[in-house]
């Protein structure tokens, strides 16, 4: 192995996470999982609900510790949450008491970025997500889609090495999702293609965004598919033959549907 080679963006080494319920029952959410996400790679994770996808993400974010195994981000062990791993949550986490621009600048303030630089960064990201006229608005004055854009901009503005996203577009209609996919990809390209680990329930979304699709079932990665479609990916492309083969492969790993 070449010692000078850059370490992967995310590396999981035989990670297991077990929860003990109040009843005393032990539930294994993640089982002996190993995974490598290269720098700049966009990985989408699909799988049935309650099979360990969010636990995987929470482990990478440092919100919980593994029962056994090791997690490394850019070669450094994960000890807890940190600004090197930006997290976009499924639920709304915007700070309602801070205006939109102040939400985007929160991470920059926390890292003591100088005021002028903060201001310029916030303006740039507001423009990228199409909210340049809403910097002074309160989050409650925004629609659901606009709030997701602010949440994503706030995380990207902080320039983490790795983006962890837990169903960031859940509950939005098709059109809003499509718009946000473009916003996300624009930010990803603008940010120098940092690694993304995104959980979704929508296989089409994974086909539009991902370089790889992982299927997680019963706490294990049961399938790892490369999406070798060129970017940007149009509707025709993700409904074409090559995408259909990937879709079928992914869906089949969810398990056979018991529908007569």
């Amino acid at each position: 192995m070449n010692k000078d080679a850059e370490p992967p963006a995310i590396e999981l080494r035989s990670v297991t996470k077990t929860f003990v319920l109040e009843s005393g029952e032990r539930v294994v959410a993640v089982r002996d999982t190993s995974l490598t996400v290269a720098r700049g790679e966009f990985v989408c994770v699909v799988g049935p609900s309650g099979h360990g996808k969010s636990t995987l993400l929470n482990l990478m974010a440092g919100f919980i510790k593994p029962t056994s195994g090791e997690i490394l981000v850019n070669g450094k062990p994960v000890e807890g949450p940190g600004p090197d791993r930006g997290v976009v949550f499924q639920q709304d986490t915007l700070f309602l008491w801070r205006r939109v621009a102040d939400n985007i600048s929160f991470g920059l303030e926390a890292r003591r970025v100088p005021k002028e630089e903060r201001k310029a960064t916030v303006e740039r990201y507001l423009k990228t997500v199409g909210l340049e006229d809403f910097g002074g608005a309160w989050p409650r004055q925004l629609s659901g889609g606009m709030r997701r854009r602010v949440a994503i901009a706030a995380v990207f503005a902080n320039e983490p090495d790795v983006f962890l996203m837990d169903e960031p577009f859940v509950g939005l209609d098709y059109l809003r999702r499509a718009q946000l996919h473009k916003v996300l990809l624009d930010l990803w390209e603008e940010g120098g293609h940092r690694a993304v680990f995104m959980i979704t329930h929508d296989v089409d979304e994974a086909l539009v965004l991902g370089d790889r699709i992982l299927v997680v079932k019963e706490g294990r990665i049961v399938e790892d598919v490369e999406v070798a479609l060129p970017r940007p990916r149009s509707t025709y492309m993700i409904t074409g033959e090559e995408a259909s083969i990937i879709r079928r492969d992914v869906v089949l790993h969810f398990g056979e549907l018991d529908i007569a």
Partner: peptide, 29 residues
């Protein structure tokens, strides 16, 4: 106050004091 606010703040680089004073407290108002 939902724990996700504190987790989000920490993932943006906020230390425990900043998280408590600027996130947890306002969220409780």
């Amino acid at each position: 106050v939902p724990s996700r606010y504190a987790q989000y703040a920490q993932s943006l680089g906020a230390d425990p004091l900043r998280t408590y004073a600027k996130v947890v407290f306002p969220a409780s108002i």
